[in-house]
Write a protein that binds this DNA or RNA. Structure first.
Lengths: 208, 208, 208, 208
DNA sequence: AATGAATGAGACTTCATTCAT
DNA sequence: CATGAATGAAGTCTCATTCAT
């Protein structure tokens, strides 16, 4: 990042700081209690402000929630486009690349737990988010099938969904880096190799 | 359940019919609008009753909701124990058996959409339900690993989660029997064979 | 009214009585304070009820207000159609008939002061009400002009407005029957005879 | 007002200009939406200022409103005293003079529509304004009765009210100069001659 | 002269729930 | 078995107004 770029947002004004604080607090409360059980009063008092202040910065409770969801989706999509495997890749290498993809997703989801909870696990937005993610991944997969990286007799859309389903389940219990590493490896293995016995290579990576 | 057992509850009393009607209507409304957006007033008026009637049969809105969730989980668990692959099975045959398992899950989930929505897709219960399902499946998988049906270098727990993740994603778009059949086949393939090119056998089953 | 007719609305149910009470209290408060300064809390506490009760009977504060305005207009229109002068009438008699019309309007407006305040004096509805009244009266006048009762070189519409203007001003200070009688006579005289000196007949009816 | 007097307030300071702008904008908003539906925020943002600026120039929203009402009343009274018919006047000439009075009122009310709306049509002030106007006019009428211009067997107060009532109704639909001219003539005729058939002279002035 | 930021007070409305019948 | 009627408690949002700069 250049100097100039940094100077575009130099000193956040007081209002901007207040807004950011409210957003952070709101994310925490929404994540903890869900949309309906979070009261605007909870948010503002956690932020040390009075109720009307909330409405200076957001049109409504719903608008604030949606802003958080949108932010999560934006980040998630940005990550996804990053993970397209473009190079030609040896079969042996594929497993590692796929593992890396899972890992990056899991790290991402573990990074900002509040936002993840809101955007990825809580309704009503979570279904939409996952549908989106499935289609972004499917679009990667389709290209990768064309490159001959993956078998093409299962539609990219289905694989996208399967990918999402795996991430979804794994993300619910990925508190530690170690767990994420294990989970990513396991998903990648299943996805690349299947559960058939052929691949049971020496049992060197037993998972818990 | 035997014939005799069925005849133990022969003529439902009026109260029982009213209760059943309320439960059905409640399921429909909860499924359509979610827990928080469903008002007791909606339920009773859809059932052609007055508000106090609701409280004759249920302690609270929450109690009714939980009854529905519990019923869903009961059925789901009952199904799951059914799907254990006990026989020794040839590798070639495995794919069909796993496909069948997926298919049964998907059919089950398509059977009573309201209950599925409530128990499987809507928070706050859905996470719990899926955790349960994952562990029931894991318990099957563990046995199947011991029978040498599946590779054992990936923990049954992880496979259980992956299984659930796949079902979860597929269930969201399984309106027709054909879609379910395709989805089950695709999941089974990925799960058994992986995405590696090795298995791209003649492209006879391209999915949409 | 026949017996049967009376039995159509025999015993008002408790709810109906409550609704009527709320409406009466609301009329009083709206009349006293105006729409914006009247709080739903004022109304219900004057009626000895809790806030939510108000919303059992009315969709909103505004709906209740509009119901009152509509009721007032309905009554006012009903009265107006009554006052058409249909018979052929001698010039000498006309003054008394017009006086009677003014008198009936003024009595009507003095009958239910709350409703009058709301429907006839308070915005935003009052302008609309008066426009309506002017047109109903104009429609009477037009017929009366055709019958040769009034001069026809001033449009019925204008006369309708003038009529309304007179009633409007007089109604603001017509607390006693005597005042109304005097006001009606004065208006009728001006309307029928004008202020020209020709009519200053013996000064037998000096007004205050 | 003489020339010299005008030059006493030569260059309005910036503050004075801002105040005037706020007042003008406030008049427009109050007229458009009424007192209660006009928010201080609307006014300042229409004026391109911030909220605190409003309170630099006015003690409160109410104070600003009252200032506008007072200004309107001042102008209206100034006009009214102007319209006293002092000369002895032939009966034939009277109609034209009364017409002129009505016309001047209607022109005045059409001159600054915002102020008219606020001072003459909107509550709570409008009733008071009209009461004032009625008494100013009555005071003219009383003198004119003494001069033998008008019949004296109807009290000047009543005539004042009737006058106001006519103006009130006519002012609501006097957008064009032509309409005002017609309305003034019609009012004057009714007021001077009444509706009796005696005056239906050749129909030379049919109104719409 | 002007404003960015904040708030006290309070309004309307909703909803799960209960009581008496 | 069922309901007409009522409410306690709470929540979202608005607005005139002020402080510190």
């Amino acid at each position: 990042m250049t100097r100039a770029a940094k100077q575009i947002e130099p000193i956040p004004s007081k209002g901007e700081r207040t807004r950011a604080k409210l957003l952070a607090v709101a994310a925490a409360e929404f994540a903890r209690l869900g949309y309906h059980n979070t009261k605007v009063g909870d948010i503002v008092s956690s932020a040390g402000l009075s109720q009307p202040s909330f409405y200076i910065y957001f049109d409504s409770k719903e608008a604030a929630y949606e802003e958080l969801v949108a932010e999560f989706r934006r980040r998630l999509q940005a990550l996804t486009v990053t993970l397209l495997i473009e190079r030609d890749v040896a079969a042996a290498e594929l497993l590692d690349l796929v593992t890396l993809s899972f890992l990056k997703f899991l790290h991402f989801l573990a990074e900002d737990l509040d936002l993840t909870e809101i955007g990825f696990f809580q309704p009503p937005g979570c279904t939409e988010t996952k549908k989106g993610l499935a289609s972004w991944i499917a679009s990667n997969i389709a290209k990768e099938q064309k490159s001959g990286i993956f078998r093409a007799d299962i539609s990219a859309k289905q694989i996208g969904k399967i990918f999402v389903g795996m991430i979804d389940q794994m993300a619910r219990d990925s508190g530690s880096r170690a767990k994420r590493t294990q989970a990513a490896r396991d998903c990648a293995r299943v996805l690349c190799e299947g559960l058939g016995l052929r691949h049971q290579a020496g049992m060197q990576h037993t998972s818990t």
